[in-house]
């Protein structure tokens, strides 16, 4: 177990160092995500009632679409010879999956935290009751998307049409995550219970992480 976590920590460090140098999330994805949130109210003629009604859905749709980009880019970063090096350094494929998912989760959390104020300003200026729950939802969405992105990136590694196939793999499985996140935010605004949607997010996250760890070894073998 400690070997699994030690290997995962190395992958997290490597991915975050690489992102720190490349800065793609901070300098490219976040500004584009903020612009997408800004353009939606403009495109529906600043009708405040409609904007507030569709705000959570738009926010989570933007997080989902740009989040997929974040995780796919982060997990595509390893050249084949570096993958071999990690394996020969004693890092298990399951560790690589866990590490990439954790690094992707951290990047997505930054993305969500930067976009959240933009969402509040444009879509819910009066604020959202029970907003501390949004941190829980944001964390669960980030874990789910990161696990899904890592799994899809691993499945499509080496394929010539990788960049086209990976998002297609992610989109259907991301739908329940998007639905649960949107419903939770909506229900929080009206003061209703959210526990079943939180449970759905937890179940999705666990299922994706377990599936990813189980298939990581066979997938790595099939890529050789």
């Amino acid at each position: 177990m400690s070997g699994l976590l030690w290997g995962a920590m190395s992958v997290i460090r490597k991915d975050l160092l690489a992102e720190g140098r490349a800065g793609e999330v901070l300098t490219v994805t976040i500004p584009f995500g903020a612009l997408a949130l800004l353009f939606f109210p403009l495109s529906i003629n600043t009708d405040l009632a409609v904007i507030r009604q569709i705000g959570p859905g738009i926010f989570w749709a933007v997080v989902l679409l740009f989040g997929i980009l974040v995780t796919l880019r982060a997990t595509a970063a390893d050249p084949p010879q570096c993958r071999d090096l990690l394996l020969l350094s004693g890092v298990e494929p399951a560790s690589i999956f866990l590490g990439r998912t954790a690094a992707g989760t951290l990047l997505l959390l930054v993305f969500e935290l930067v976009l959240a104020p933009v969402m509040v300003v444009f879509y819910s200026p009066e604020g959202i009751a029970g907003w501390p729950w949004l941190f829980v939802v944001a964390g669960l969405v980030a874990i789910g998307l990161a696990a899904l992105g890592t799994l899809a990136a691993t499945l499509s590694t080496g394929l010539p049409s990788r960049s086209a196939i990976a998002p297609l793999l992610v989109a259907p499985l991301a739908a329940p995550i998007l639905l649960a996140a949107t419903e939770t935010t909506d229900l929080l605004r009206t003061g209703q219970g959210i526990i079943r949607w939180i449970l759905l997010l937890v179940a999705m996250d666990l299922a994706l992480i377990i599936a990813g760890m189980l298939v990581a070894g066979p997938l790595e073998e099939s890529m050789q």
């Binding site: 160092l17 690489a18 970063a77 050249p79 010879q81 071999d84």
Partner: peptide
């Protein structure tokens, strides 16, 4: 340890 014909280095690091 395997030293391949392409160096195994992460370019941004």
């Amino acid at each position: 340890a395997l030293v391949g014909h392409v160096p195994a280095l992460w370019p941004e690091l």
